[in-house]
Amino acid sequence: MSAIVASSPGHLSRLSFGGILRSEWIKLRSLRSTAWCYAIVIAVTIGLGALYSLNTQGQGLTADDIRGLAVGSSTLGVNFAQLVIAVLGALMITGEYGTGMIRSTLAAVPKRVPALIAKCLVFGVATFVVSAIALAGTAVASWLVLSNNGIHADFFDGRVLLPLLGAAGYLALIGVLSLALGAIIRSSAGGIAVALGLILVAPLILRILASVTRAVWPVNVSAFLPNSAGGLLWAYTSGPTAPAQSGYIVLTTLQGGLILGAWVIVAFVIAAILLKRRDA
């Protein structure tokens, strides 16, 4: 407290998008909750994958079965990991609203939208990398366990590798979608509830509706929800797809990915418009 004025901030310093990205990266890695959630994602994905592989026997499996097994065991943890990622994604921004940090953020980036873009990019990329590490770890664990059980799976086969990459992309997109929902809702409890509601509860309700009414539409609506459309990104698809039952919509992997992408973009645009309009 001795000196009143010390080194100046430098005369070249000014607001830039690169700077905002760096700022969001510092924010991401300086919170303990981020490290915890990512550690849980990695541990659970690898653990579940290895456990699943343990209980498989190699007798009478076709090459197709083995590839399906490789994908299935490696991605078993994704269903759980997505919940952790969704919560973390919502907290990325609702945590700032809850603590008042958002005002510091928006005072530094008064045009606002670049801050949201940077947040989404940094969180999306970080989640993709962490998920890819988790899936690579599961692939290695599954390969070891499966080999031990006499099953020799080729994880570098495109039909195995692509779904694993797809799973990492899926988790990143679910994370960004939850972040955008959090930006719309602004409260942590509300943001998490809406994100998990969309991922977990909405498909469940539609399934119940389908079985109660015996109608086709709940199934078809459900196909467009983020988790079922996006789930195609990491589903194992064997050779020719089975012919669809009449009336039921069947989406390709590409269509599924595009639909999840559309969810993310729509949520982001709404979040950006509201961020621009509302008082911080």
């Binding site: 901030p9 310093s13 830039s16 510092i26 008042g100 958002i102």
Partner: peptide
Amino acid sequence: AVHTGRSARNHLLALAATH
């Protein structure tokens, strides 16, 4: 206007980084 989970220095580093 500070996230309670972050250290003071990291808070300032994050703000400074934008500029």
